[in-house]
Nucleic acid binder design. Sequence first.
DNA 1: CAGTGGTCTAGACCACCAG
DNA 2: TGGTGGTCTAGACCACTGA
Lengths: 249, 249
Amino acid sequence: MIQRLANPPIQIDKNSPVPLYHQIQEAIKSLIQQGKLQVGERIPSENDLAKQFDISPMTVRQALNGLVQEGYIYRRRGRGTFVAQRPVKHPLDRLVSFTEEVLAHGFEPSGKILFFGHVPAEPTVAQALNLADGTQVLRIKRLRFASQSPVSLHDAYLRDNLPITREELKATGSLYQLLAQKNIHITGGVDEIRSISADDEMSEHLHVKSGAPMLQLRRITEDRTGAPIEYVIATYRAGFYHYTIRLKR
Amino acid sequence: MIQRLANPPIQIDKNSPVPLYHQIQEAIKSLIQQGKLQVGERIPSENDLAKQFDISPMTVRQALNGLVQEGYIYRRRGRGTFVAQRPVKHPLDRLVSFTEEVLAHGFEPSGKILFFGHVPAEPTVAQALNLADGTQVLRIKRLRFASQSPVSLHDAYLRDNLPITREELKATGSLYQLLAQKNIHITGGVDEIRSISADDEMSEHLHVKSGAPMLQLRRITEDRTGAPIEYVIATYRAGFYHYTIRLKR
DNA sequence: CAGTGGTCTAGACCACCAG
DNA sequence: TGGTGGTCTAGACCACTGA
């Protein structure tokens, strides 16, 4: 007798343009999130799931491996597949923009453009973007607010070949969203996080005392080829913001 | 005519206990790291590789997908598989211990145990470790040095069922290494990074002025089931240390 | 021992892309 | 139009686990 998943059973659509493995992956994820599969509980074996859905075991494998990757389940040879225990908070293991972050915390994001224009790249910027010193880059300096309160200063440098205008940025608000509209997709990057003292500019714009502790994030974002798109230095008021990340190895 | 990978050709061993997909994955990774495959260069198709190594296309797939996951290559339907551009620095996308980190930067790690003993868990600690308030936990407070210079204060709380003695910790130096010896493997976790002002204790131990900016890392480490193992609050002198991470989505 | 996941086979059809 | 990767099939053998 095969062990079945969920009651009433999950329906999958073999004629859907959505891949079968993806349908199953999302269905199981949903059962876990709804608590219909408890932490530590065993889920049916590959073979049982393959029979239940009348698909190939390899397709089931693909779905389950995806869930392992996302941290929802873990597998032990000879024993079975089990629902992993996850902290409720912080499923934030992906690149997010300021806009997405602030919305996720329940605040209203807004911004003010302090500078928008082309400048020659200084050595640190040139190195980050993999360009020669002095190459023209687009610099966008913005003050960012969460529900009217100033929280961060963003200083972004972009490769010059990106067709972005000040007006478009004002209209959209989110730089990453704007890039996505132009079919430039951020798929990776490197973050460096430091603690620094507020300088006069930060002090003035962010309403903190000079010398106050600040969280500074320097990020290089990359497209799927690994080529750098943007180098941004974001400085946050301590206390308001902390950086959270879920790691796996 | 099939396109071949590398000259002289790579050898794989079908009788090795090392899985075929893993042999191929490591071989290609090695070619990239040695620069024998240039950034942006196309590598042979699945079918060609399958023929070259005389294995199934699905096995080649598994190897290539692993390399995509690690960010070494990217694939485009209809076009091919290409070597991704990766910044040389910071391949640090995994959980590392203080000891590993400091060694990686070329310093000599050492430590001094300031406290070692059982205490009742305060609410924040209990929540992090998923225990009831007041449960006994093992608290290990350490001052950490890089080449004699004090750089951080570590305050770790561990679930009480872990058989660790002060002497073992002194002998090993690295808590994660000690846990690994006892067959407890850290496979994931959540990091939170903040910027804070130094309090009197930090000021005294780390030789900084009271109120100076500090980088604070709060980490919950988990075993493969997702169960919390350790909650640690590590406070670093700003300037010495920054937190680096490579992200993918 | 029977059942599990890990690896592997030898193909298939399709959507997508460049020429 | 031919080649690519994305998805999928219908199995196989093995190492490992718990009973």
